[in-house]
Amino acid sequence: METNRYHRQILFAPIGETGQEKLIRSHVLIVGAGALGSSSAEALTRAGVGHLTLIDRDYVEESNLQRQQLFSEADMEQKMPKAIAAKRRLSEVNSHVKIDAIVGDAEINILRQIVPETDLIIDATDNFETRLLLNDIAQKYQKPWIYGAVVASYGVTFTVLPEKTPCLQCLQEYIPANGATCDSVGIIQPVVQKVVSQQVTEALKLLTGNEAALSGRLISFDLWKNEYTEIEAAALRKSDCPSCSEKRSYPNLAYDSRLKTAVLCGRNTVQLRPQRKHADLDEVAEELKKNKQIKLFQNPYLLSFEVDSFRIVLFQDGRALVHGTMDQLEAKNIYHRYLG
């Protein structure tokens, strides 16, 4: 072990040499490499977690730079997938951490391969569909996961422990209806750091064998309004929960293989995920070049083109983002027109 690198962390008594060795042997999955994911990935990389897996479906855009700390203007100009740009930066920060970057949706087949190998999942997603999927897969493989979310100057976080705390499905009645989380109310960067402080501290406790120090509480705060709230969450556990009780059936793992569409929060963008799992970007580019009206951009990970008032970004895994609409039907039509 490079004792000098982690010296101050080892000096911190609850971690010590033993805790640091545990960290180095740990594998953490971070789902989402946006604001929360960038920040917790950097913190865990600096802390010396042995193996990190990052999953993200998006690429770097200008409006991300205000709060997504791993990304640079060059990443934005090259439209780098966030997972790839994050891995690049994290490897500069700590070359001893093994980092796997996955450009794609955190969908069930990918999670099934990774989650059994991990010690912990950190939620850095921006939607409840993925969170509910994470919840059930974490319950199935008995892994802890740490919910975190932010909007405006408000943040909320909770650590879900299998068999011990309520799970997200227990709290399902409190999940806002679809779309209600897409408020265009913006976000300030410090609230990201505050949620990540909670999430990463809980992660360090779990990974270093300090479970007794976990908060056990649902924590929320509004930095602008100077509000801070903690609720003892144990009473919210449901004895008949379909995801974590004895009668569990994991409703959120029910697999749907059709073309899936999702409206991305506050982005005027629809994602389409077809059944096929691969797109030959060069082949598609050749085809599109025949149409002189189309403006093309390509990097090794994605192909972006503009047509009418839309911009379409196609990834190697076959997914496409259609920018310029929130209408799922319209997005499907554009997809089929240009990508078959």
Partner: peptide, 10 residues
């Protein structure tokens, strides 16, 4: 009184 609501952003 403590009031908490869930949000989705990340």
């Amino acid at each position: 009184v403590e009031i908490v609501h869930f949000v989705g952003g990340g």
